[in-house]
Design a protein around this nucleic acid. Structure first.
Lengths: 295, 295
DNA sequence: ACTTTGTTGGAAAATCCGTTCCGGCATGAT
DNA sequence: ATCATGCCGGAACGGATTTTCCAACAAAGT
């Protein structure tokens, strides 16, 4: 007898999962989270492969399916496959209605699309401008550094903050210079030639950032600069500098490209520190179980 | 030994098929035609079911695959499956080839490309999942709000920080809850029903964020949540919530999509506040003179 | 006309996969 | 502390699916 509460499409499945979270056993929740987060894997993989990725036993998948009222794993899987068959092609539709100026009017969706287009464009541009050798040198500096001071204020602050979050996970000593209580100079007091600094600033350049980068450079700390123009006042103090031009949409710019570059520097440096042998393979699997928590 | 002429993505497969049509046996042409015309069937079906639909024998499918240089039918099928994974631009494939060792060694450029591909994929995904009506409602809440409390810790902190930077430029009263000195509760002490909150958190969810969002919701402050799964503990306290799944590259996730969404909310709300008449045209010129400084 | 080469259909075989079942374990209640 | 309940991991089973193999056939060259 078919359970009427068993969802037959992906959206309602998500709803049911959200509702019944809590009264599900631990492993089943684990499966639920994985399924919602990686629906494609569930759609195509075999029970065994999915189980491995979700770090559970295949039998748990079957239990999961039955707990929701499905006949078995395959029955559950069909829901995920169905999603891919008809779920996707509304993208073109949405674009169409978006461009039909008349109807949509001042639809915020258009804004969203605009921002994401812009971000994608920035990413593309950055890939073409960043030089491999600059990257190498910068990573080398970071990998050798004792502490890495992260300097970015105002618009650039999110970059510094994110690096401060990520670096300890990569076995790098990132020190965020947030200038709380105007204690910025003190936060940088110990920076020396054996350390390094990543300084980020865009127009209009924050004086604090420029000044502190200058001081650090004077004391022999190698400074890696991320900025948006050759005329940046930061550039003279840089050992290595990257120009990242974020395209603008209306009056606003994304940080996507800068974020990417920053993460690349951090991850590559981290890799080099923990595995200094340059012959080793990168081996960045697509989210296998047992890897460190996504960041 | 892998044949280098064997196409690994759907587009080149079509190209090869177009080229070699003619020097293929009759039944194999029949299979080729069917495959190009019904790629979804090939992706999902079993060899037997596809064979029936294409009016050939299952063994013919295997022959077809081998004639093109694949290891077998399953190998060929994987190409069709990859095509469906991430929609049209086959990001998964590109990422895969990026990761498949080989050419560039451990070039940091590869990392950079990987991160930017991932960011682009996330952006694409978000565009397809965010609903227009949710956006509308959220923007409405923000536009009506007195103060807008910005709550995001750890990995989500950059988002909150960026919003805090941008909002005042948009005539919105953004209040950053940074929890410096553990003064978070005090920063939120005055939040009431006439205000609003944007709360951002991803796995592993920061308890502080969840707790403060809960408190705010209890006191009647409408909470807009940005998170990464239905299972987010933030979700129950949300008036409106957005699911943003950032694809992961290795163990790392970008913030690009989340940033875009956040900016959209802020800009749209700002527009509605300063120009409340809904009849007015959008007028987002690309950087007209006299506009506020790029952000 | 005969042979050779290549193609096709079908069935057998090997593999893989989903499912079931049982023993162990942790948890919470008595 | 003991028991009961429910959850979890692993192995074994049965079914389905892919693959291989062989015989029949068609076409082309001799």
């Amino acid at each position: 007898m078919p359970d009427p509460t068993t969802p037959r499409d992906f959206e309602s499945l998500k709803a049911v999962l959200a509702e019944r979270r809590g009264d599900l056993p631990r492993r089943l929740q684990q499966v639920a989270a994985f399924a919602v987060e990686h629906p494609d894997e569930v759609a195509f993989g075999t029970a065994a492969s999915i189980a491995t990725l979700a770090a559970v036993q295949p039998s748990t998948l079957v239990r999961f399916a039955k707990a929701l009222g499905y006949a078995g794993f395959s029955d559950l899987q069909s829901v995920f496959r169905h999603r891919l068959r008809e779920g996707w092609p509304d993208y073109a539709d949405r674009l169409r209605t978006l461009n039909d100026a008349g109807t949509a009017g001042r639809d915020p969706l258009r804004l969203l699309f605009g921002f994401s287009e812009t971000a994608a464009a920035s990413l593309d541009r950055m890939r073409q401008t960043v030089s491999s050798s600059d990257l190498e040198t910068a990573i080398d500096i970071l990998a050798r550094a004792d502490s890495i001071y992260l300097l970015g204020q105002r618009r650039a602050f999110p970059i510094a903050a994110y690096l401060a979050y990520a670096m300890p996970k990569l076995n790098l000593r990132g020190v965020l210079v947030d200038n709380v209580g105007s204690l910025g100079p003190e936060q940088l007091a110990n920076a020396g030639p054996r350390d390094a600094m990543i300084a980020v600033s865009f127009t209009p350049y924050t004086p604090f950032t420029v000044e502190q980068a200058r001081l650090a450079a004077e004391r022999g700390t190698p400074v890696i600069v991320i900025t948006d123009s050759v005329f940046s006042p930061l550039q003279p103090h840089a050992r290595i500098w990257f120009e990242v031009v974020e395209s603008d949409y209306g009056a606003f710019r994304s940080l996507s490209a800068t974020m990417c570059l920053a993460m690349t520097l951090a991850v590559a440096a981290g890799e080099r520190v923990t595995a200094p042998a340059p012959a080793r393979k990168p081996v960045r699997g697509t989210g296998e179980a047992g890897q460190p928590r996504p960041t």
